[in-house]
Design a protein around this nucleic acid. Structure first.
Length: 119
DNA sequence: CTGATGACTATAG
DNA sequence: CCTATAGCCATCA
């Protein structure tokens, strides 16, 4: 699996996170079938173009914190997008217990096998 | 090949 | 809660 396909898969996964819900970098990696690839998720999102339709703002640290530095432009942009979807951000953090995205079980079970097909 | 670098994470103090 | 530390792993100089 090359870089392009991996990042593609990560983008697809992030696109599945519905508005108003969030996921951690590690969670996205797991659902995408790439365990321990939290950092690669960050890479994939970093490579997105400004006009992308991928909802990158719904991805947070495992603690619920926005990954960017407090006060940075990127940080404010992400917070603005989250709040616009009704997600409450307090002290730079989101309550994961409340907003964590729960991917459909059938996807978690069957997606991996469909990946075996194109192998 | 080697070492540095992250939009990361879990753990310990 | 916060900082430090050690894993982690693709990418890049």
């Amino acid at each position: 699996m090359d870089r392009v396909r991996r990042q593609q898969r990560i983008r697809e996964t992030v696109r599945e996170i519905p508005a108003g819900r969030v996921a951690s970098y590690g969670q996205v990696a797991d659902v995408a079938g790439l365990p321990r690839a939290a950092r690669q998720v960050g890479q994939a999102l970093r490579n997105l173009s400004d006009a992308t339709d991928v909802p990158w703002h719904r991805v947070l640290r495992s603690t619920g914190a926005i990954a960017f530095a407090r006060g940075s432009p990127a940080y404010r942009e992400q917070r603005r997008r989250l709040e616009r979807e009704g997600v409450i951000v307090l002290h730079g953090k989101v309550d994961m217990q409340t907003y964590r995205w729960q991917p459909p079980l059938d996807e978690l079970l069957w997606k991996p096998t469909s990946a075996w097909d194109d192998a």
